[in-house]
């Protein structure tokens, strides 16, 4: 069964790039461009959550903390991304499973995704 990856990223082009990369690897990918639409999604829980930190209607770190605080979602790995490397430490504090700084190396990115899903 295909692994499901949910991506929360407001930049359409980066979202498109990630969809391309992950689909190519055989993952099911859904991209949300803001927190509101992400929350509205009532479907199945993903196997991995990839979140950009700076979002138009909130902060990705908060979503991460929320998921990690919830019994139902805590087991789902979360990868945080940002162009601000400083968020790396906040990501760790928010119990994220990994951090990817932008611009990323696609090999690094895919390795990190695979590692989280294995």
């Amino acid at each position: 069964m295909k692994k499901a990856v949910h991506v929360l990223e407001d930049d359409i082009d980066i979202g498109e790039l990630i969809v391309f990369l992950l689909t190519e690897q055989g993952y099911d990918v859904v991209v949300f461009s803001n927190i509101a639409s992400f929350r509205q999604h009532g479907g199945q829980l993903p196997d991995l959550l990839v979140i950009d930190v700076m979002l138009p209607d909130g902060n990705g770190l908060d979503i991460c903390r929320e998921w990690k605080a919830d019994e139902a979602t805590r087991y789902i790995p979360v990868l945080l991304m940002s162009a601000y490397e400083d968020y790396k430490h906040d990501a760790k504090a928010s119990k994220a499973d990994g951090f990817i700084s932008k611009p990323f190396d696609i090999k690094t990115f895919l390795n990190e995704v695979a590692r989280q899903l294995s």
């Binding site: 980066i14 990369l21 162009a83 190396d105 696609i106």
Partner: peptide, 21 residues
């Protein structure tokens, strides 16, 4: 500067990704 650097890095991310592909 903080905002500008973030905004500059966003398109770089896409460019780098496609170039690597």
């Amino acid at each position: 500067i903080a905002l500008a650097s973030h905004e500059l890095k966003t398109p770089l991310t896409t460019i780098k990704g496609y170039l690597q592909i």
